[in-house]
Design a protein around this nucleic acid. Structure first.
Lengths: 339, 339
DNA sequence: TGCTTTCATGGAAGCGCTTCCAACGCAAGG
DNA sequence: CCTTGCGTTGGAAGCGCTTCCATGAAAGCA
């Protein structure tokens, strides 16, 4: 292990000062390209790795971002797991560390850690946690923060958002256009912006086709798999021949319920979801769903956060990411014999 | 935000030197209790938070541990998700940061990051990744490392391990003792120690009861849900009236398969798994399974790692954690009318 | 050619903390 | 009463890096 090569050594062996070496390695200008390359070569040859602590101390950046997945007793569902994974990858690609923050008992303490310790320079907050009160404390404390999803009460925040409404309209439209006469929906908590936008998409799809909505076809639930499962009976009873579960967890719950009752998908009931985690595609049957572009979301979030931290008083950035639809086996194909 | 209280200020306001203040706050001796308390009071009043970067730089510790969940294209399954969650909690409780390391493209680079950057002081490697070659590089590089699960090829490593064999024997025994005449098993990859120990437990249970094992009842698979599902037909065909899926993912796959075929659990086939993630308990029906004590595993792992880092040349520590069995709805109850 | 401007460069001051070491005060022992 | 020794204390030297600033050389201009 040669983990004790310091900048000083690199500088000496390249015949320049530490200052120059530092600039060379950090792509700052004020160094001739020639010198820059030489220093870099030497650094590589020596296996130099900058000491992050020192860099942080001197430079004020820690090169680590926090990722808040949830708080309290929340479990890491498939959405969360997918996002975590993509975020880890994105952070890595941007040469940032990713520090996971889940359910510290006291949000305040978490906030304190984040801000005070200088351990991380910014935070990404997943949709799951956005509603929490302590997130607002974070925002108020002016910690560089990027939300993955909109905040229900404030718009002065940087956000990476997946397009919820139109995508939902598309997939519900797909159900309606492939033979479903009456499509029900199971929504997430209406306190969450994404959930209500997806419901809005559901309405929009009907509107566009001049279809009236039967409000009794709208079931409110909580994004949880079990809750989906428990709604099976109700959904079956309402006579729908199509369901839009506004996330995959609930849809998977419904699918299990349907399966147990011998209800065939898509023939008896077609079903579509929203999220597209690995479980969805690997599932049986494969669920037709709106694919969250997790990797793109994660990359965008990291990049947005980095940009946020460069500025001292940055304007909130809002990014929209467009998902695609995955046509699985739980809905009929668009145009069976070409339309 | 008053995030710029430094040790110097605390020291000044308590009327001592920085040296004394540092010692006071870090519970080192060489400070009168009286002074210590005063400093602490002042520190608290001022809302002092030590700057981790500085502490790290000066002290050589970063107070962050890495957690390697997987590498490559591995998805975060329910086991991984549960472990991540518990680990985050454990780290938090020990006042350590948790840095998530998943699938960096190049293991070597990951290793480099870990060691060189001084960003983290140690690593915990989840069972999922233990087999990978780069883990050995890590170990060879003498990075403080704790494995969650045994290493297939070396024993000179610190390990937190869940008891696999006996627990499996117990739960298979439960199947055998509650009416199953012939219990099949679906195993994980035999390259993994945990998988082969669970198989061993399966054998043990039979042995203890003087039952011969039909080797055709042993199906080798890969811990993946889909693979479980795909074995449904085979398992049904083999005539077993009980199955031990050696993890929950596969068991859930099987359950879905059984469900679709109208096979009732536990009456037609009883099934038991191994892991006990939140999905298991919330599932329908609830799967009888060996509950990994995730929180205990995580705490032990963190503590072991911390102890490892204190010593300069520490002996490998091996910790065994005993799981409990959760009796769900997929097996018959132990003694229906008292035995 | 003599001036100013530009730019690469190195010196050196910290960033906030830990820890070595010397200094000091005090109690016990001679 | 003076010495020895212990335990508490503060001074100060870094940890490895970034960055401000002064320097000097090269280049541009008249």
């Amino acid at each position: 292990m040669a983990d004790d090569v310091t900048l000083g050594e690199v500088a000496r062996k390249s015949g320049v000062s530490m200052a120059a070496a530092s600039r060379a390695l950090n792509s700052k200008d004020g160094v001739r390209p020639e010198v820059r390359d030489r220093v870099r070569l030497v650094a590589e040859a020596l296996g130099y790795r900058p000491n992050r602590a020192a860099r942080n101390l001197a430079g004020g950046r820690s090169s680590v971002v926090g990722f808040v997945v949830g708080s309290g007793e929340l479990r890491l569902d498939s959405y969360g797991a997918s996002l975590v994974q993509s975020m880890a990858r994105a952070a890595d690609a941007h040469d940032e560390g990713l520090m996971l923050l889940m359910d510290s008992k006291e949000p305040n303490v978490a906030v304190q850690n984040l801000i005070g310790d200088g351990l991380i320079d910014g935070v990404i907050v997943s949709a799951v946690a956005i509603g929490e009160r302590w997130v607002e404390e974070l925002l108020d404390a002016r910690v560089p923060t990027v939300l993955v999803g909109e905040h229900p009460r404030r718009s002065d925040v940087s956000v990476v958002n997946v397009e919820n409404c139109e995508s939902s309209a598309q997939i519900v439209g797909h159900l309606l256009d492939t033979g479903c006469r009456s499509v029900a929906t199971v929504t997430g908590p209406m306190t969450r912006v994404d959930a209500s936008l997806r419901l809005q998409g559901y309405r929009l799809a009907h509107e566009r086709r001049g279809l009236e909505i039967d409000e009794r076809m709208i079931f409110h639930s909580d994004f949880d798999r079990r809750s989906g499962y428990e709604l099976t009976e109700t959904v079956v009873a309402c006579g729908a021949d199509g369901v839009f579960g506004s996330n995959d967890e609930m849809s998977l719950g419904l699918m299990r319920g349907f399966g147990e009752r011998g209800i065939k998908m898509p023939d008896d009931i077609a079903i579509a979801g929203f999220d597209g985690t690995s479980e969805t595609e690997q599932g049986v049957p494969a669920l037709t769903t709106v694919l969250q572009p997790f990797q793109e979301i994660a990359n965008t979030a990291i990049e947005t956060l980095l940009r946020l931290m460069e500025d001292s008083d940055p304007p909130p950035l809002e990014q929209l990411v467009i998902p695609e639809i995955f046509f699985g086996e739980t809905t009929r194909n668009p145009q069976p014999g070409e339309g």
